[in-house]
Simulated scan of single mutants.
Amino acid sequence: MKKIVFTTLLAIGALSTFAASPSWAQQKITIGYATPELASSFWISMTYGVESEAKKLGVTLVKLNAGGDANVNVQISQIQDLMERKVDAIIVGATNGQAVNPVVENAIGKGIPVVGLSSIPNSVGLASKVGADHYDMGRLQAECLGKTLGGKGAVAMIAQQQGQTWADTRRRGFMETMNKEFPAIKVIAESRKSVTRNGAINLVDDWIQRFPEINGVYNAIDDTAAGAWLAVKSAKKEQVIKITASNLSPTAQQMLKDGELVCTSAQQIVTQGREALRQAVLAATKKPTQAVVETPAILVTKDNLATLDLSLLTAPTSYRP
């Protein structure tokens, strides 16, 4: 197996391993898709990529939603259900990479190939791992926020659920870059739980009251950045507290345009969903797969937003999973 690294935002075109797609529909392929949730713009865009590629290739997709990162047992049961349905391959965006590992290993042991998507199960037997350079996403946020704050200050982090591979890796990229390049900026508050947009409002409001010196907020996802902004605005600290995020939902795009978000480190979410489906089909038909498919991070600001091809990053606004 090989590794593919997309080097530009224009790299979505047909991959060499998938150049001339056969009629997969004639082979009656069924792919299972276990997603951790469909409440955030991120997993909505990811699911759009998976579904649109399945439709394009003519394969059947069985989609199961765990309903949230905390619902590990739900996702384990759903993966077991996909195994009982005897699907030809399974795509897993894990609620918790370590916790779902035993059931993923069980599926692999039964001859069902598994593709990890973004939040990768901690399994050595995956047919392919599809995701972004999450470390670089954290690094880019640190560089952006550090420069915006002039190299000194106090920041809080909404780092999302501990145990989520993507969240842990982004956090590490942010922390290591901050410690190395901006040692005068200190992290004084952090949440390692799964936080929603509404949850971020209460969380940041509490931090502002407890730590009045806060002048920056890191967000592992853009949905919480929207909540953080509402708390900052309510406290009348828009000119003091700077907010950064990852991903590029329509909400984040508008926040950038309005100056509410300093920057966001974006990834090709739709591209990842499409590629995960492709790799699953290849594995299901016993064709060679790519061990790792990685899309690069890109720093998005108000200045360069208009130059991006958003169809690779987010689902159409009309899409409903």
Results as ranks from 00 to 15, higher is better:
Cys263Thr: 13
Pro296Asn: 00
Ile243Glu: 04
Asp205Leu: 03
Ala297Gln: 10
Ala200Phe: 07
Trp207Phe: 07
Thr285Lys: 14
Val217Thr: 06
Thr289Lys: 11
Ser249Gly: 09
Leu299Pro: 04
Met255Gly: 11
Val293Pro: 04
Leu310Asp: 02
Pro296Tyr: 00
Gln267Ile: 11
Met255Asp: 13
Trp207Leu: 08
Ala266Thr: 15
Gln239Asn: 10
Thr224Asp: 06
Ser234His: 10
Gln209Ser: 12
Asn202Trp: 00
Leu312Met: 00
Thr196Ala: 06
Asn304Trp: 01
Asn247His: 13
Lys287Glu: 15
Gln253Val: 11
Leu313His: 05
Ala228Asp: 06
Ser191Pro: 05
Lys236Pro: 03
Ser249Cys: 07
Ala276Leu: 12
Val217Asp: 03
Asp206Cys: 01
Val293Ser: 09
Leu312Ile: 02
Ile201Gly: 05
Asn219Pro: 08
Asn198Gly: 05
Ala284Thr: 15
Asn304Cys: 03
Gln279Val: 12
Ala200Arg: 10
Thr251His: 01
Thr224Met: 05
Leu310Trp: 02
Ile298Lys: 07
Lys236Arg: 12
Leu305Met: 01
Asn304Lys: 02
Ser311Tyr: 03
Ile241Gly: 07
Leu305Thr: 04
Leu313Gly: 00
Gly259Met: 06
Ser194Val: 06
Thr196Phe: 04
Ile269Arg: 07
Lys233Arg: 14
Ser265Cys: 11
Lys287Gln: 15
Pro212Gly: 10
Thr285Gln: 15
Glu213Gly: 09
Ala252Ser: 12
